[in-house]
């Protein structure tokens, strides 16, 4: 009975709705939170939503990973490898930026004792 749900269209719709919900949650967090680490978490959630959308919409149920192993000798019935390679690259970049942001936040907290972006106003016009 549930076979009707196991079609590419339904899968893609679920991925699209799910990742857009995730993106909105991240955007909401970005706009409303004031703690530096929560802002970085919101950014990470937004990035994850984009990766999920990319991976989800470029494959279909039944497709396998684009890797020649387990007796597989040709690229038939595999998912498109480009999005997966791109997502891996983007993940690495996002991780690096996130680590940089968190370490800068820690240093900033050590210097000033604050983690609140609202109170970061040393650069406003006096």
């Amino acid at each position: 009975m549930l076979d009707a749900l196991d079609t590419p269209g339904v899968h893609h719709a679920l991925y699209a709705v799910g990742s857009m919900a995730l993106f909105s949650i991240g955007l909401y967090g970005l706009l409303t939170r004031r703690h530096l680490l929560k802002i970085f978490m919101s950014l990470a959630i937004m990035e994850m939503a984009v990766y999920l959308l990319f991976i989800g919409l470029t494959t279909q149920p039944g497709r396998t990973a684009p890797i020649l192993s387990d007796g597989l000798v040709e690229f038939a019935g595999t998912a498109d490898p480009v999005p997966q390679a791109l997502t891996l690259t983007a993940l690495v970049i996002a991780l690096a930026v996130l680590a940089l942001g968190v370490s800068m936040s820690i240093r900033y907290h050590q210097l000033t004792g604050t983690t609140d972006v609202e109170t970061m106003s040393a650069l406003k016009d006096p």
Partner: peptide, 14 residues
Amino acid sequence: RDAAALEAGLKYLI
């Protein structure tokens, strides 16, 4: 790496 520079860096990064 003083407070003002880190504030600028963090804001730029975000």
